[in-house]
């Protein structure tokens, strides 16, 4: 059975330099389509991608990633903003790799575009008012 899943891969800074994703294609015959990538040397890397292939290969791929120390997060989680808690400061704006936060130039409020959000969760801890929450 062929499946297709969207996942977020978190790479610890120690493994950012290794070629991991290409093995999913070579060894497990999985097709990957990178939706977003956020990789800086010496820092945690983040890849949002769609993986397609046989279900058994997909399972094997997931096992391989976890052996390599990659944290896999399914994209069925949503990050939402608590509108009461948000103070519209701006601490999130340049933290979001997907640029889901923008400053409305007229009101100076922070707009959150849920459709751009890749649910990576970087904003959750970077928000001093703790207004961003992960929902599963």
């Amino acid at each position: 059975m062929a499946i297709s899943r969207r996942v977020v891969l978190h790479f610890d800074k120690d493994i950012v330099g290794q070629s991991i994703v290409c093995r999913l294609a070579k060894d497990m015959d999985l097709e990957f389509n990178i939706i977003r990538a956020y990789v800086t040397p010496e820092e945690e890397g983040l890849l949002v991608m769609e993986l397609s292939g046989a279900a058994s290969n997909y399972e094997e791929g997931m096992r391989y990633l976890s052996q390599m120390g990659v944290v896999v997060q399914s994209l069925n989680q949503d990050v939402v903003r608590d509108e009461v808690k948000c103070t519209h400061c701006g601490a999130c704006v340049n933290i979001c790799p997907a640029k889901a936060f923008t400053v409305d130039m007229a009101s100076r409020k922070i707009d959150f575009a849920g459709d751009k959000c890749v649910a990576c969760g970087l904003c959750i801890k970077a928000c001093p008012a703790r207004a961003m929450e992960a929902r599963f």
């Binding site: 103070t87 519209h88 400061c89 009101s107």
Partner: peptide, 25 residues
């Protein structure tokens, strides 16, 4: 700073406020 981008030593760098200007208004 409030335009969203400044230039430092020739590099364009995105800016953000940590205080809430909308609440200040």
């Amino acid at each position: 700073l409030k335009s969203g981008e400044i230039e430092i030593q020739g590099k364009k760098v995105p800016t953000a406020s940590l205080s809430s200007y909308s609440r200040a208004i």
